[in-house]
């Protein structure tokens, strides 16, 4: 007799834990032919709220880590996925990918994570500056994370799209609340298990599954979310822009095919950074006439 398989229960990832949605609701993820493949949590606005609270709480811990340490943690994420490659490939196939393209998507995702792991302790050196002001002051500008970022995961790719925007956001020290790909949600939850096993502090990344149309509003009107990222969704752009006005969220919208190799780069990190400029007087005493 064939062994009875243990089926996976997909839950949301919030505050470093895997609760069910507080709403108790679910929706079915379907395969290409429309057959149900899993019951997903149908997240609610309260799930969004809880996730934002967790993300805010985790901001100090995550942004306070040394850039080098963040780099190691991102690399660790890549390592863990590498070991669980087959699980992601299976999920992608289950969601309708061809085997070859599923393998490629997982491999590209791993490479992209490694790419951003490498940026963590470097991007600041590139965009920062010492500004030669015309007074006796030392003046420098450097990056700081914008804070809590809401990310609506790209809806056209299950894993690579998520990774392509989430990695630059957290590489820069932000924490994030992700609305997962609605129709291809499996990888995002499995990915959260990877995050959980990779020394990413609880709450730094929160992933909620559900109806994008329902969750966009609580996320983009949330006064404690500092920035918002999404890809495509052109028909929702105006609505999201309007929702974001009240606390002047930094809205970053992209319209890209994340499978392209040129959809990674420094600016995806700096899009979620604030520039801070610091001044301090320079005491000019002595040595003024020194010619070395």
């Amino acid at each position: 007799m064939k062994r009875v398989e243990i089926l996976k229960t997909y839950k949301i990832y919030s505050g470093g834990k895997f609760p069910r949605t507080e709403s108790g609701r679910y929706y079915m993820a379907l395969d290409k032919k429309g057959n149900p493949i899993a019951n997903m949590c149908l997240g609610s606005r309260k799930d969004v709220r809880n996730a934002v609270v967790s993300a805010r709480k985790a901001l100090g811990a995550w942004s306070g880590k040394t850039a080098f340490n963040r780099s190691q943690i991102l690399y660790r994420i890549a390592e863990v996925i590498e070991g669980r490659k087959s699980q992601f490939v299976e999920e992608l196939i289950l969601q309708g990918s061809q085997k070859n393209s599923a393998i490629k998507e997982v491999e590209d995702s791993i490479d992209r994570i490694v790419y951003y792991a490498g940026w963590c302790d470097k991007f600041c050196q590139i965009g920062s500056s010492v500004n030669p002001v015309s007074s006796s002051h030392f003046n420098f500008s450097t990056y700081e994370p914008v804070g809590v970022v809401g990310l609506i995961a790209p809806q056209d790719s299950s894993l690579l799209g998520l990774v392509s925007l989430l990695m630059p956001i957290i590489a820069g020290g932000n924490t994030c609340v992700v609305l997962a790909n609605e129709s291809l949600p499996l990888c995002s939850i499995t990915f959260s298990e990877v995050l959980h096993a990779s020394d990413v502090p609880g709450g730094a990344v929160n992933i909620i599954t559900g109806h994008i149309s329902e969750l966009i509003k609580p996320l983009s009107t949330h006064m404690d979310v500092n920035a918002l990222a999404f890809s495509g969704l052109n028909e929702l752009k105006k609505e999201i822009d309007l929702f974001s006005v009240e606390n002047l969220k930094r809205v970053r919208s992209y319209d890209l095919n994340w499978k392209n190799t040129d959809t990674q780069g420094l600016h995806y990190i700096t899009d979620f950074q604030e520039v801070k400029t610091t001044w301090h007087p320079i005491e000019n005493i002595g040595g003024a006439t020194s010619t070395y």
Binding site: N131, P132, S134, H137, N139, S141, T277, W279, H280, P281
Partner: peptide, 11 residues
């Protein structure tokens, strides 16, 4: 240790 300083080179 200063305040309200501005300069074209300073963002």
């Amino acid at each position: 240790n200063t305040y309200n300083k501005f300069d074209p080179a300073s963002p």
